[in-house]
Amino acid sequence: MTMNEPIAVMRRPSIEAAIRSAIADPRRKRQLLEATGWDDSMLSKLVQEKPAGITLDKLDAVLAALDHVIVTRRYLDAMCTMGKVGMFCECARAGGGECGSTR
């Protein structure tokens, strides 16, 4: 890795890390089990990398229990652009160009 690589390449959060973190916290583990209807044996399969067969109908429940949502890169790119430009920029909204511009 180099410092020129995007942050997403340098440090990639994962569902695996989120699940492992939830399992380590008794309250979050209980939420995950309740949301999915799984028992402890399913979590053991997941962390031991045994075939667990997470079904599609459980994916939303897993993500919700982990407090994660799925968004597209396009959406995130748009949010980054708005953040750079200044989504609450009074200058731009008044027709004066972007804040910080050398107009």
Rank of each mutant, 00 (worst) to 15 (best):
K45A: 05
K45I: 04
K45N: 10
L46K: 02
L46M: 13
L46D: 03
L46T: 06
V47M: 13
V47Y: 03
V47T: 13
V47H: 04
Q48T: 12
Q48K: 14
Q48F: 07
E49F: 12
E49G: 07
E49L: 14
E49W: 11
K50Y: 01
K50L: 13
K50G: 03
K50Q: 15
K50N: 10
K50S: 04
P51Q: 15
P51D: 08
A52Q: 03
A52V: 05
A52G: 06
A52W: 03
A52N: 02
A52I: 00
A52C: 05
A52F: 04
G53F: 07
G53Y: 01
G53L: 08
G53S: 08
G53M: 04
G53R: 12
I54E: 00
I54N: 02
I54M: 10
I54F: 06
I54Q: 02
T55C: 01
T55F: 11
T55D: 10
T55R: 15
T55G: 12
L56Y: 09
L56T: 10
L56E: 10
D57K: 07
D57H: 06
D57F: 06
D57S: 09
D57C: 00
K58N: 12
K58F: 06
K58Y: 04
K58D: 05
K58A: 07
K58G: 02
L59I: 15
D60C: 08
D60A: 14
D60L: 09
D60P: 09
A61N: 15
A61W: 01
A61S: 15
A61T: 08
V62K: 04
V62L: 10
V62G: 03
V62C: 02
V62R: 05
V62H: 03
V62S: 05
V62Y: 05
L63R: 04
L63D: 02
L63M: 08
A64V: 11
A64Q: 13
A64K: 07
A64C: 08
A64I: 01
A65S: 04
A65M: 10
A65D: 01
A65V: 08
A65N: 07
A65F: 04
D67R: 14
D67H: 10
H68S: 01
H68M: 13
H68Y: 14
V69E: 15
V69R: 12
V69G: 12
V69K: 14
I70Y: 08
I70G: 06
I70K: 14
I70F: 14
I70T: 15
I70Q: 15
V71K: 13
V71P: 02
V71L: 13
V71N: 10
V71W: 08
V71M: 15
T72G: 12
T72A: 11
R73M: 03
R73D: 11
R73W: 06
R73Y: 12
R73A: 14
R73I: 12
R73G: 02
R74I: 01
R74W: 00
R74V: 01
Y75L: 12
Y75W: 14
Y75D: 10
L76E: 06
L76T: 09
L76A: 08
L76P: 00
D77A: 15
D77P: 00
D77V: 07
D77G: 03
A78W: 07
A78D: 05
M79W: 03
M79N: 04
M79C: 09
M79E: 09
M79S: 04
M79K: 04
C80Y: 01
T81R: 13
T81S: 05
T81Q: 03
T81P: 00
T81K: 06
T81H: 05
T81I: 11
